[in-house]
């Protein structure tokens, strides 16, 4: 089954620092911007929800038509991991977020990485895509 999944990491000031289309669905031209729009719009909800719970994984926070936005907020609440998806694999998404969070922390530990800047590491990218294949 072709799934749509768009993963994004949003840093402080709503700046995206990592984007990846990890779904198996054939890519449509306008999909990329639609996904960005949906994820961008969901930031409001994430902002609201982040303060109502102590859990990092916020589950599905927003939806647009049949696309669901799940979010995961790191401890500083500035960095938000967001996934736009159309599948209902809640556990998988949670695991995915946790592992990507771990990866992100490793990236943060890299002294040459400036927090808040774009993650350009190809290693990170491959790992995220592998995790997406595994869990989503």
């Amino acid at each position: 089954m072709a799934t749509t999944a768009c993963f994004i990491i949003v840093s402080r000031n709503d700046i995206p620092i990592y984007e990846a289309e990890v779904g198996s669905a054939a890519k449509r031209e306008d999909a990329a911007q639609l996904h960005q729009f949906i994820l961008h719009a969901a930031l409001d909800i994430v902002q609201d929800l982040a303060w109502t719970t102590s859990a990092m994984y916020l589950k599905a926070v927003d939806r647009f038509n049949d696309l669901v936005v799940s979010a995961y907020v790191t401890a500083d609440t500035h960095t938000r991991l967001m996934l736009l998806h159309d599948s209902r694999n809640d556990d998988g998404i949670k695991s995915f977020f946790q592992e990507v969070h771990e990866l992100y922390i490793k990236t943060l530990l890299n002294p040459t990485y400036l927090p808040g800047s774009r993650i350009t590491s190809s290693h990170f990218d491959t790992k995220v895509r592998a995790l997406a294949r595994k869990y989503l």
């Binding site: 709503d14 949906i38 961008h40 719009a41 930031l43 409001d44």
Partner: peptide, 8 residues
């Protein structure tokens, strides 16, 4: 909710 505002 400015993000939503923009999106809509």
């Amino acid at each position: 909710m400015l993000h939503k505002y923009g999106f809509h």
